[in-house]
Amino acid sequence: MTELKRERTLSERIARADAATECEKVMALHCYWHAGGIHREEIEQYWTKRHPLTWAHNFGQMKGVDNYTSCYADAQEANAEAYYKLLEPIYPEVKEVKEKRALIEEAMHLLVTPIIEVAGDGQTVKCLWYTPGCIFSSLTPRKEREGMWIWERYGADFVLEDGRWLFLNLKVCCDIAGMMDEPGWGLSEGPPGPPPDEDGAAEASELSQDAENNDAPRTQGEVSIPGPLHYNLSSTQLPQATPFIPVPYEIFSETYDYATLTGIYEEDAK
């Protein structure tokens, strides 16, 4: 474990305590805004303006604000619009709903079991949470509720810019994603996400439309680096040590960050 290199002043210790509280708030805000479909505004207000950002899930990593925006905002809004068009003939009331992006689903990603490690220099924070959550939809084209259990882990880097704590990297590792009404929802049969093609760049993927159930096809956006970066739980899946557990550190580059695609140290990479 890395030891902090020098004694901190009282003022520095206060600033680090404040940093931990503020980053916890920003992460919670991400969860609530994600739940409400408020994605574009989150990117604009709570992500770094000065550094190249990354966002990753099991299926791959997106690099840069344009790539991330294309997935988290553009694709999300397109999906929400398509879903609204399916719902409106069935539930005309949705015309009056203010935030139509919320109609597709509520992604309820809870934050538990935090580790919040503030850098010795007070400029960055590295965090890890479990997020045992669910995604549910009340109004659906099938006229019945839907729900999915989704248990993930969040590894997040934050950076201090102009007195505000902003996201730098967010790595989402999904362990369980199964429909609530399906037996054996906790176990998957294989790795999720699109397989990498020959040149290593995954194309924008579409889930196939289920004509019988009348789902809207969903777009996902391109990834910069394809997955799989983490595997869903299955009967043959070994425990996975991702995202890495943060340890005390002095400056950001001292330990690996959550843009790293492997373990905390290269020698631990699988």
């Binding site: 805000l29 609530y32 805004w33 739940a35 409400g36 479909g37 949705v94 709903v97 203010k98 935030e99 919320a102 109609l103 597709i104 689903e105 509520e106 549910f136 939809s137 009340s138 109004l139």
Partner: peptide, 12 residues
């Protein structure tokens, strides 16, 4: 009501 999923109230 969660009829429209995430409710604006209570306010974040």
């Amino acid at each position: 009501s969660a009829r429209h999923n995430f409710s604006e109230y209570p306010y974040i």
